[in-house]
């Protein structure tokens, strides 16, 4: 489901287990969408980055473990554990492994929308 600003409905927020990711098909792109919840239970937002991990060449970032490093919310690639900041898509260890970050928002009825290219 895509509207004129190219926002794609990926899933409902409740379809994402807290502090995990899912992979959404946004146009032809694979986008990893994460739901971040604090240890005390507050929703801290959703984030969207490429699902493709440039270091391993596999579409796996949505399956990584999330956490924080020096205050930045990050996901660790499940293959070689390189960390990517969810806000920007920047790889902490080596900028060459950075990925694209996508605009993402919650729509009415708790749906997750990602803006494609």
């Amino acid at each position: 489901m895509t509207n004129e600003q190219n926002w794609t409905l990926v899933c409902g927020l409740s379809d994402i287990v807290p502090n995990t990711g899912v992979c959404g098909k946004v146009g032809e792109a694979q986008v990893a969408v994460f739901r971040i919840v604090s240890p005390s239970g507050e929703e801290d937002g959703v984030f969207a980055i490429d699902n493709f991990d440039p270091r391993s060449g596999a579409n796996v970032l949505s399956r990584g473990l999330v956490g924080d490093m020096d205050g930045q919310v990050v996901v660790a690639s499940p293959v070689y554990k390189n960390h990517i900041a969810l806000e920007t898509g920047t790889c902490i260890e080596d900028a060459a492994w950075s990925v694209k970050a996508y605009p993402v928002r919650l729509g009415e009825g708790g749906i997750v929308l990602v803006q494609g290219e």
Binding site: V17, P18, N19, T20, I36, S38, P39, G64, L65, V66, G67, D68, M69, G71, V73, V74, A76, K81, H83
Partner: peptide
């Protein structure tokens, strides 16, 4: 903080060694 890919699995392993709950329970899966 929120934890990371080092401490989360370590704690998950300790919990499994003590409680032995199903590892993919929603509260443990992440």
């Amino acid at each position: 903080g929120r934890g990371c890919d080092i401490c989360k699995p370590a704690v998950a392993s300790i919990l499994a060694s003590q409680k032995n709950e199903f590892v993919l329970k929603p509260k443990l899966a992440s």
